[in-house]
Design a protein around this nucleic acid. Structure first.
Lengths: 204, 204
DNA sequence: GAATCCATGTTGCTACTGACAACATAGACC
DNA sequence: GGTCTATGTTGTCAGTAGCAACATGGATTC
């Protein structure tokens, strides 16, 4: 009887790790991070209450891992945009910002997770360092764009703050349920484009 | 013996409600929202584990009440700025934005609380309606500023999105611990002013 | 001034959760 | 074919939220 019976669940789930992550994201989308419970997930999936521990030692580790995957995706996407030789430095800045906001709009729950203090508190030091590196890279890019003549009168750090704030704010408007209900209309992709174009001066 | 003995705690605490709120904010500042526990608060304060229930029926209610007080303060401050007859419409817009960002910088934990999905999920409908009213008021103000000639070419909703995003983003940079560690320097008040002036065109 | 009321606090309980330890299973590897 | 190890299970403990029944004493009323 090495074949698994159709009616009895096999001893090993097969891909519990991925299943846990997928279900957790679904729960977050439906009921928020607070509602994520390892035991409830295990029940839903049909494994014992301690099975998730084999993949994530703690509840925080599960949430941090999900957040981490999101940040990784963002960093990779940003890396590709930075390496695109067809873009000017200003266009690269715009492309990075757009990539972030569009991703947040497409993955609101995932984005709110990486903006969640309690979750990020348990993130790797490694990950935080990556984020710092990203910020430095960003600032260097701004410097190069300024060398090209773009906003050359302004202090680099001030431009950095402006761009970062605008991008973070747009991402928030696109993904935060409160803003999404309060905003008169939905935040459309063309609207994001228009705001960024105007801000970067790539429209005029 | 109507005088309370110095060594024995009186049966009634006196101002448990305020004490709970104050301690909770301190805990949030030190260890995050996640770390707030009604029972731990009760222990620290020296009352029984069920005493907090008399003031806040649930844990969520305590957090929501704290968040609510923050939003109330913000709305009131905005109301005053709106009513200031010495300011032009554009200056009022700038003043509202600055008030929000400066408050967030001064009360980071409180601000992160009102930006917390899990907490705001338990906010009154009443409060959400107030926030919507605020948004409509804001949009009307933009319309009047446009009638004065400011950014009259742009669509009102687009300007609204820009200002809201920039303001929310600056507030995030000023209060979110992650951004505060990632940012090369601290976000100073003059920097906030400079960014807003530039954005509003009140600098040139 | 005494009787009563009720806001506030207490004790005791249940259900749920995260975390840990000891044990079971089965696929992988030698 | 035998062993190793990743994965899953059962059992247990401490901490927590939430509820109910009871206690206290300041405020109110007659």
């Amino acid at each position: 009887m090495s074949r698994p019976q159709p009616d009895s669940a096999p001893y090993h789930h097969g891909d519990l790790r991925r299943t846990l992550v997928d279900r957790a994201i679904a729960v977050i989308e439906a009921h928020g991070v607070e509602a994520v419970s390892l035991r409830a997930l295990a029940r839903d999936i049909g494994v014992s209450h301690a099975a998730p521990m084999r993949h994530f030692p703690t509840r925080s580790a599960l949430l941090a891992a999900i957040a981490k995957s999101g940040i990784r995706a963002l960093l990779e996407s940003a890396g590709k945009r930075l390496a695109n030789p067809e873009l000017s430095n200003v266009q690269k800045l715009r492309s990075m910002a757009e990539g972030y906001v569009v991703w947040a709009a497409a993955n609101p729950a995932h984005h709110m997770l990486i903006r969640n203090q309690d979750v990020m508190r348990h993130a790797d030091r490694e990950l935080l360092e990556e984020a710092s590196t990203y910020a430095r890279l960003h600032e260097d890019l701004i410097r190069r764009a300024q060398a090209d003549g773009w906003r050359s009168q302004q202090k680099t750090h001030e431009v950095f703050v402006e761009i970062t704030a605008l991008t973070a704010g747009l991402a928030l408007l696109a993904s935060d349920p409160i803003y999404r209900t309060v905003l008169p209309g939905q935040l459309e992709r063309e609207e994001i484009s228009a705001v960024l174009d105007r801000f970067m001066g790539t429209a005029d």
